[in-house]
Design a protein around this nucleic acid. Structure first.
Length: 506
DNA sequence: TGAAGTTTAA
C-alpha cells in the first residue's frame, strides 16, 4: 500500500492509496483554468475572444491527436473543420505538436490552403524548426526552397534554425554548406551568421568542424570578440584545453583583449577537471588584469565546489563574492539552493529561497523546478504541488523539467489518474512530450509494475516517430519476460524494429 | 536557447 500523501485541501482526491488509482474524478489542480500566459494577456488587450481561440485550439488538437501516416492525411482530416484560424492560434497548435512533425506540418499545409490567410515568416520559421528538430531535413529543405520562391520570408532567424538543427542532427558538414550558400537564399554572409554557425557546431559537439570553418572563413569576415568566445567556450566544453588556449592567443593576435567571458570559460573548464588551484590562479589573474570575475564566474566556481561535495569551500566563494561587492542574481541563488539541497541542507535551501525575493531576485522557472524536484525527492507531494500552484500564480511558466519529477513520482506511487491529469495539463499548456519524458514514464511504470501502461507509452513514442533508448527497450522487454507476457513482448519487439527502420529512412 | 552560469536522466 502506498503512503497516503497529505495534500493541501485544494487538491481534492481520495487519500486512500488504492482508490486513487480508479476514482479521482474530482481531483482538481487549480492550475489550468486560471493560468494565463503573457500572449493571452496581450490577446485580451486587443479584445480577441481568447476563450474562442482556446476552443478552436482544442478542436484542432483533438483531430490532430489521431495517428496519421502522412501530412496529406492530416489535411484531409481537417477538410471539414470550420474553425476560424488566426496567426496566434496556429502558433499555439504548432507549439503543442512541436515534437510531432506529421500533425504539425499537415496542419500548416491545411492552414496555407485557407486562402485568406498567408502564413507569416514567423510561422514558416516555426515549421522549419519543427522539421529540423524531428530530423525531417529533406522536407525542411523543400519548405526553405518554397520560402525563397515566395520571397521575403527567409531571414537570419531561419538560417540560424537550419544551422542549429543540422548541427544537432550531427550533420555538421551540411550546416557549414548552408552557411557557405547563404547568398543563394538572398541573405548576406556576415559575421553575425558566422558566429551562429560556429556556435551551433560547438554546442553540438562539433568543435573540430567549428575550428575548420573558422579557418575557412576568417579572412572573408573579420572575427570579433563573440567569435573567439564561442570558440574558447566550445573547446573548453569539449575538454580541449590546448585548443581553447590557442583560441585565446589567436584572439590576442587579432588585437582583441580576452574579457570576463573568455576567462570564465577557462575557469569552467578547470572546474570540471576539479583543478581548483588553477581556478584560484585565474581568479587572481583576472583581478590583476582589471577584468574582475562577475556573478557568472562565481556561480560556476561555487557550483563546482558544491558538486564536488566541498560545501564549506563553496560557501567561502559566496562570502568572497559578497566581499568583492558582486551582487547575487536569480541564477546564483538557484545554484545555491541546488547545492544546499543536494548536501541535505533543506532548511538552509528554503531560507535562501525566502531570502532571494527579499533581495529583489524573483524566483524563475529554474528556482521552482529545483524546489519541486527536491520536494519530490523527499516525497513531499503536497509541497511539490503547492509550488506548482505558486509558480502559476506568479505567473512563471512551467516547462518539461517542472513536470518530470512529478510524473516520475506518480509512476512510482501508481497514481495513474494524477499522472494522466498532469499529462493533459502539460498538453494544454503546449509543453510537448519528448523522448526523455517517454523514457521516464516507461521506466517508472516498469519499476512500479504497471507493464500494460508502460507498453502503451512505448507504442505512442514509436508512433510519434521517436527511437526509444536501448536501455528503455531492454528494461521493458525484461520485465515482460519476467511476467510471461509473451504477446506484449513480441509487440514491443516489432515496434522497436519499426522505430529503427523509421530512423534509417529519416 | 544561442558569446559564459543555475534544474536532469535512462
Amino acid at each position: 500500500m502506498n503512503e497516503s500523501p497529505e495534500l493541501p485541501n485544494w487538491v481534492k482526491y481520495p487519500l486512500d492509496g488504492s482508490s486513487i488509482v480508479d476514482s479521482v474524478d474530482d481531483f482538481v489542480l487549480p492550475t489550468t483554468s486560471n493560468y494565463v500566459s503573457n500572449e493571452e494577456v496581450q490577446d485580451c488587450k486587443i479584445s480577441t475572444p481568447s476563450k474562442k481561440t482556446d476552443n478552436d485550439v482544442e478542436e484542432i488538437s483533438t483531430i490532430l491527436k489521431s495517428r496519421y501516416t502522412s501530412p496529406e492525411e492530416v489535411v484531409k482530416a481537417l477538410d471539414h473543420c470550420h474553425v476560424v484560424v488566426s496567426e496566434s492560434m496556429v502558433e499555439k497548435v504548432l507549439k503543442r505538436f512541436s515534437n510531432d512533425w506529421i500533425p504539425a506540418f499537415g496542419f500548416f499545409r491545411w492552414y496555407q490552403m485557407q486562402s485568406t490567410y498567408k502564413p507569416s515568416a514567423n510561422l514558416y520559421d516555426s515549421v522549419v524548426d519543427i522539421l529540423g528538430k524531428t530530423k525531417m531535413f529533406d522536407i525542411m529543405w523543400e519548405l526553405v526552397v518554397e520560402m525563397v520562391r515566395l520571397g521575403g520570408l527567409i531571414s537570419l532567424t531561419t538560417m540560424s534554425k537550419i544551422m542549429r538543427r543540422l548541427a544537432r542532427g550531427g550533420k555538421y558538414f551540411d550546416a557549414i554548406v548552408a552557411f557557405r550558400e547563404m547568398k543563394r537564399f538572398g541573405l548576406s554572409k556576415d559575421i553575425l551568421a558566422m558566429n551562429v554557425l560556429l556556435d551551433s557546431l560547438c554546442k553540438e559537439r562539433g568543435v573540430e568542424y567549428a575550428l575548420d570553418a573558422f579557418l575557412e572563413f576568417k579572412n572573408e569576415m573579420p572575427p570579433n570578440s563573440h567569435t573567439f568566445n564561442v570558440l574558447i567556450h566550445g573547446c573548453c566544453k569539449a575538454r580541449q584545453l590546448n585548443k581553447a588556449q590557442w583560441a585565446l592567443e589567436e584572439m590576442e593576435r587579432y588585437g582583441i583583449h580576452p574579457c570576463v567571458i573568455s576567462y570564465t570559460s577557462m575557469i569552467e573548464a578547470y572546474c570540471r577537471e576539479k583543478d581548483f588551484r588553477k581556478v584560484d590562479a585565474i581568479l587572481d589573474e583576472m583581478q590583476s588584469k582589471g577584468c574582475p570575475p562577475n556573478v557568472v564566474t562565481y556561480t560556476i566556481v561555487m557550483h563546482s565546489l558544491g558538486k564536488a561535495k566541498e560545501t564549506y569551500e563553496a560557501m567561502g566563494i559566496y562570502e568572497r563574492m559578497k566581499r568583492n561587492g558582486c551582487v547575487p542574481d536569480t541564477s546564483f541563488y538557484n545554484s545555491l539552493i541546488y547545492i544546499l539541497s543536494k548536501a541535505g541542507r533543506i532548511k538552509d535551501a528554503n531560507n535562501i529561497y525566502e531570502e532571494m525575493s527579499k533581495n529583489g531576485c524573483t524566483p524563475d522557472v529554474t528556482t521552482y523546478n529545483t524546489m519541486i524536484s527536491v520536494a519530490c525527492d523527499h516525497s513531499q507531494v503536497e509541497n511539490a504541488l503547492k509550488l506548482l500552484q505558486e509558480m502559476e500564480e506568479r505567473p512563471c511558466k512551467p516547462d518539461l523539467k517542472t513536470y518530470a519529477p512529478l510524473l516520475k513520482m506518480c509512476c512510482q506511487k501508481k497514481w495513474m489518474r494524477i499522472l494522466f491529469f498532469l499529462l493533459d495539463d502539460m498538453f494544454k499548456k503546449g509543453i510537448s512530450i519528448e523522448i526523455g519524458t517517454y523514457s521516464l514514464l516507461v521506466n517508472g511504470l516498469c519499476k512500479s509494475g504497471n507493464l500494460g501502461q508502460a507498453c502503451l507509452f512505448f507504442e505512442e513514442m514509436v508512433l510519434k516517430g521517436l527511437l526509444p533508448w536501448s536501455n528503455t527497450y531492454t528494461r521493458l522487454v525484461k520485465e515482460l519476460e519476467r511476467k510471461d507476457m509473451e504477446t506484449e513482448k513480441e509487440k514491443i519487439r516489432q515496434l522497436m524494429e519499426q522505430a529503427k527502420n523509421g530512423e534509417q529512412t529519416c
